[in-house]
Amino acid sequence: MTTVAVLVEAREGTVTQPTFEALTLARTLGTPVAVWIGDAPADAEAARLGVHGAEEVRVVAVGDDARLPAKAAAALADATGDADVVLMISTFVNKEIATRLALATGAGVVVDAAGAELVDGHVETLQTVFAATWNVRTRIATDKAIVGIRPNTTQATPAETPGAATVVEVADNLPETRETIVALEPVPAPEGVPLAEAPVVVSGGRGTNGDYTLVKELAEVLGGAVGASRDATDEGWISHEHMVGQTGTTVTPALYVACGISGAVHHRGGMQASGTIVAVNIDPDAPIFEISDFGVVGDLGDVIPQAIARIKEVRGA
C-alpha cells in the first residue's frame, strides 16, 4: 500500500482549493493522509479533508516559528516517516521545505509538476518548461518521492468513499535553527479567489496606463482574479502580489485574458500553460498574439467595455 502525505495549505484556518486538488491527485497514487502544520484545524476543516479522501489528519501544532523552512521541513519529516510520496503545492516556500525534506530523507524531488502517476513502482511527473514550450516527464528514482504540484492542474473532486480524517497529533520536536523571524507583517488576503488558484485570470500591463478599472471590471464579469505584468508592478500601478511571471506568480487558469500586455518571455513563463489565452493589444506585432488562441488588435478602452456589454447582454437575454 502506498501512503501519500499531502501538506495542507490553509489561509486563516480555511483549507485552500489546491489542497483538495492535491488530495484528489494523491488518491490516484495511494492512500492519502493530510499533514497540518500550525494551530489544530477546526472539525469542519478536518472533515473537508476527509471528504477529499484523507484517512488521517496529522497535526503538528506549532506557531509562526514553523514558517522557517528548516523548521517546517523538520515538522513534515516527523509527520511523514511512513509516507512513500509527499505531495505539496508548488509555492516558493514549499520548494524550500521540499529541498530540506529531501536532504533529510534521501527522497528525490520534482517541483512545479502538472501531474504525477505511478509507473512500475516509481513516481513519474509531468512538467511544462521553457515558458511552457516543452513537456518533460521525470522519473523519481528513489523509493521515497516528493512532488510539488502546481495549482489548477488537477480537478478537485470528493472521494467516492470519504476518508476517516482521524486527527492524529504529532509531537513537535522542532530543531533549533540558525534563523530567527524578527518581524512578521501579514499581507491582507486577496479579495476573491487568489491569483494562483483562479480559474480565470484577467491581467493588465503597460497598455492600461495604470488604470485597472476595466481590467477589474472584466475580471469581475468573468469571475476571475486580477493579474499584472512586471512593467505594471514596477510602475507601482498595482501591488507585487498581482504579478504574473516567472519571478512572480505562475498561473494555469482555464482562461487567461491579457490586456495591454506585450508578452515578454518573463511574462509568458508565468502564464503560457493556461488553457485558453486571449489578448487585447494596440500593437499588432506584440508577441502575446503568437501564443493567443484569440486576439484583438485594438484599444483597451474601446474593446473591453464593448466585450463586457456584449457578455452582459447575451447573459441577460
Binding site: A102, G106, A107, G108, V109, V110, E124, T128, A132, T133, W134, N135, V136, R137, T138, R139, I140, A141, T142, V280, P284, F289, I291, S292, D293, F294, G295, V296, V297, G298, D299, D302, V303, I304, P305, Q306, A307, I308, A309, R310
Partner: peptide, 28 residues
Amino acid sequence: ARTVVVDASPRPPKEDRTVVTDTGEGGV
C-alpha cells in the same frame, strides 16, 4: 541523481489562432 528525465518533447504550437483588428466590433 535522484530524478531522471525520461521524456522531453516540444509542445505543439497552438492551432486555430485568430487575431482580429478592431474596426468597431472587436469587443463583440
